[in-house]
Structures are given as structure tokens and as C-alpha cells.
Design a protein around this nucleic acid. Structure first.
Length: 280
RNA sequence: CGUCUACGAUGCGGGG
């Protein structure tokens, strides 16, 4: 059964749900009894593909053969619903699951909070955050990053910074992704001064900027038609050995073209191709 | 302590 589970898992991760399902049927034919992990893996595969209905079919099937869902199973369902924009449903189901003995963890709430953020329902996200705190579960850096991202995306940098302070007051440290979220927030509102400050701070606390941080900054400068600064960052990336990706190049090339710098743009295009990056 | 949930950040263009 474990071997089959691993095989099925592999295909689910690749998105080959048809193959995964035939393996599932095959194991039953051989007289093997799928366990809770088999069902959870399959469900997760369907959810990740956006096939929520089939995911629930598997869930029902599992319950039908008297296999008791574990916390993994419940988290899989909640996460799956949140990912496809059915966060309210997920929140309702959570109540239901809790009655069945499920104990939510930070991850559970983070999924729901992020789901609401992605739906643009920052207030719902906030209220889940409050509920989570009230039930004694400590938010982590992921929780705060989602909320900060939500406030940045809804043009509310003040509240984003307020969440940042709340996070710090709990003794949590920013990681690269948290910095990146904030940096991107400032870049989007074309406040490159603040973005730069955070960029420096990131290094001061001993972290290293990654490709996403650079891409955000480059994009920010591009939006201000400051291609000198953008190209400067590109140089830095190369010096630091951070590989540029398709996004880096499209941002730079697009900016250069809008700036009438065709020769530079075409140099970058060649550089990109020479690195084996294929344009989309 | 055999297998499953890890949740957060970035571009351009197009469509609506």
C-alpha cells in the first residue's frame, strides 16, 4: 500500500490524475486496501488541479468505507477550497470539521486568510486572523505576510505597516518573503525610496535578496522610467550570481523599448537567449 | 518513529 501511495503521489504532483486514478483502481483490483493517506493524496491531487468535485468524490468515498479523515485530510480540503476561490465555503467547513474533532493549526488559518486576501476580501481575512488569535493559535510570519500583502494590494500601506509592527511586537522576524512583499508594495506605489530602505535593511539583518526582490525593484524603476537604476540592479544580480529569469528580462526589455533604447534591449535579448531562456 | 496537508512575495502582453 505504501508503494502504491508513493506512486500515486508522484503522479498527483505531476498533475497526471488519470494515471493516479488508474493506479488507485489497480491497487483495489489487487485486493489492497487504500488507507487514509491514499485517499488524502488523491484528494489533494484533484484539488490542486482545480477539480474540486472529484476531490470531494474521493472524500465521500473514503468516508463511505469508514476510513476516518486525519488532520492532513482536513487541511487538504480547506487548502484546496481556498486555492480555487471558495474561501467562504472553506471557512464554513472548518466549523464542521472542528465539530468532528479536527484541531486547526496555524497552516489551516493561513490558508483561509490567504484565500480571502486573493479574493480581495481583506476584511474577512482580518476577522479570521482575529479569530485565530482568540482561539490561542499563534500567527507566524506567513500569516503576517499574507495580511501585509492584502493591505498592500488594496492600497493601504499604513495598515500594512501596522501589521508589520504587530508582527514585530510578537517577536517574529521578517524573512526574505516578508521583505519582498513589503518591497513590492512600495514599488507598486512608486515609492522607491522606501523600497530601497527595506532593501538595505534586508541585507543588514543578514538576509540575501532573491530573484523576486530584484524583479520587484526592477519593475518599480521601470514604471518610473528609471532604466538606469533598473539596469544597475540587473548588474548587481549578475555580480551576486543570482540568475535572472524570463520575468527579469521581459521587464527590462519592455522598459528599454518604451524608453527608445533599442540597442540595449536587443543586447539583453541576446543575453537572455544565451542563457537558454525561452521568450513567451 | 516507512508514504500524504506547507500556507505567504515578482513581469509583459492579450481577453473581459
Amino acid at each position: 500500500v505504501v508503494s502504491y501511495n508513493n506512486l500515486i503521489l508522484g503522479h498527483c504532483r505531476k498533475g497526471d490524475m488519470d494515471v493516479a486514478n488508474s493506479l488507485f483502481l489497480e491497487m483495489i483490483e489487487k485486493g489492497l486496501k487504500p488507507n487514509v493517506i491514499t485517499y488524502s493524496v488523491l484528494m489533494d491531487g484533484y484539488f490542486k488541479k482545480g477539480d474540486t468535485e472529484r476531490g470531494f468524490d474521493v472524500f465521500d468515498q473514503m468516508v463511505g468505507v469508514n476510513i476516518v479523515p486525519t488532520d492532513f485530510t482536513f487541511n487538504t480540503v480547506i487548502n484546496g477550497l481556498c486555492k480555487v476561490g471558495r474561501t467562504s465555503e472553506a471557512k464554513e467547513m472548518l466549523k464542521n470539521f472542528v465539530e468532528r474533532g479536527f484541531i486547526p493549526i496555524c497552516l489551516t488559518y493561513n490558508s483561509i486568510i490567504d484565500g480571502f486576501v486573493k479574493e480581495g476580501a481583506i476584511n474577512s481575512a482580518l476577522s479570521v486572523y482575529r479569530g485565530m488569535c482568540e482561539s490561542g493559535i499563534s500567527p507566524n510570519v506567513v500569516t503576517y505576510t499574507s495580511l501585509i500583502n492584502g493591505f498592500c494590494k488594496s492600497n493601504n500601506i499604513d495598515l500594512a505597516l501596522k501589521m508589520l509592527n504587530e508582527m514585530k511586537s510578537k517577536g517574529l522576524e521578517l524573512d526574505v518573503m516578508a521583505y519582498c512583499t513589503l518591497i513590492d508594495g512600495f514599488c507598486k506605489r512608486r515609492d522607491m525610496e522606501s523600497a530601497r530602505e527595506l532593501f538595505s535593511e534586508l541585507r543588514e539583518v543578514g538576509l540575501s535578496p532573491n530573484i523576486v526582490v530584484y524583479n520587484s525593484m526592477i519593475s518599480g524603476f521601470r514604471n518610473l522610467d528609471n532604466m538606469e537604476a533598473a539596469l544597475d540592479l540587473h548588474k548587481k544580480m549578475i555580480n551576486e550570481g543570482i540568475p535572472c529569469d524570463l520575468q527579469t528580462y521581459t521587464t527590462l526589455i519592455d522598459g528599454l523599448l518604451k524608453d527608445g533604447k533599442l540597442p540595449l534591449a536587443s543586447d539583453l535579448y541576446s543575453e537572455m537567449l544565451s542563457k537558454g531562456i525561452v521568450p513567451d
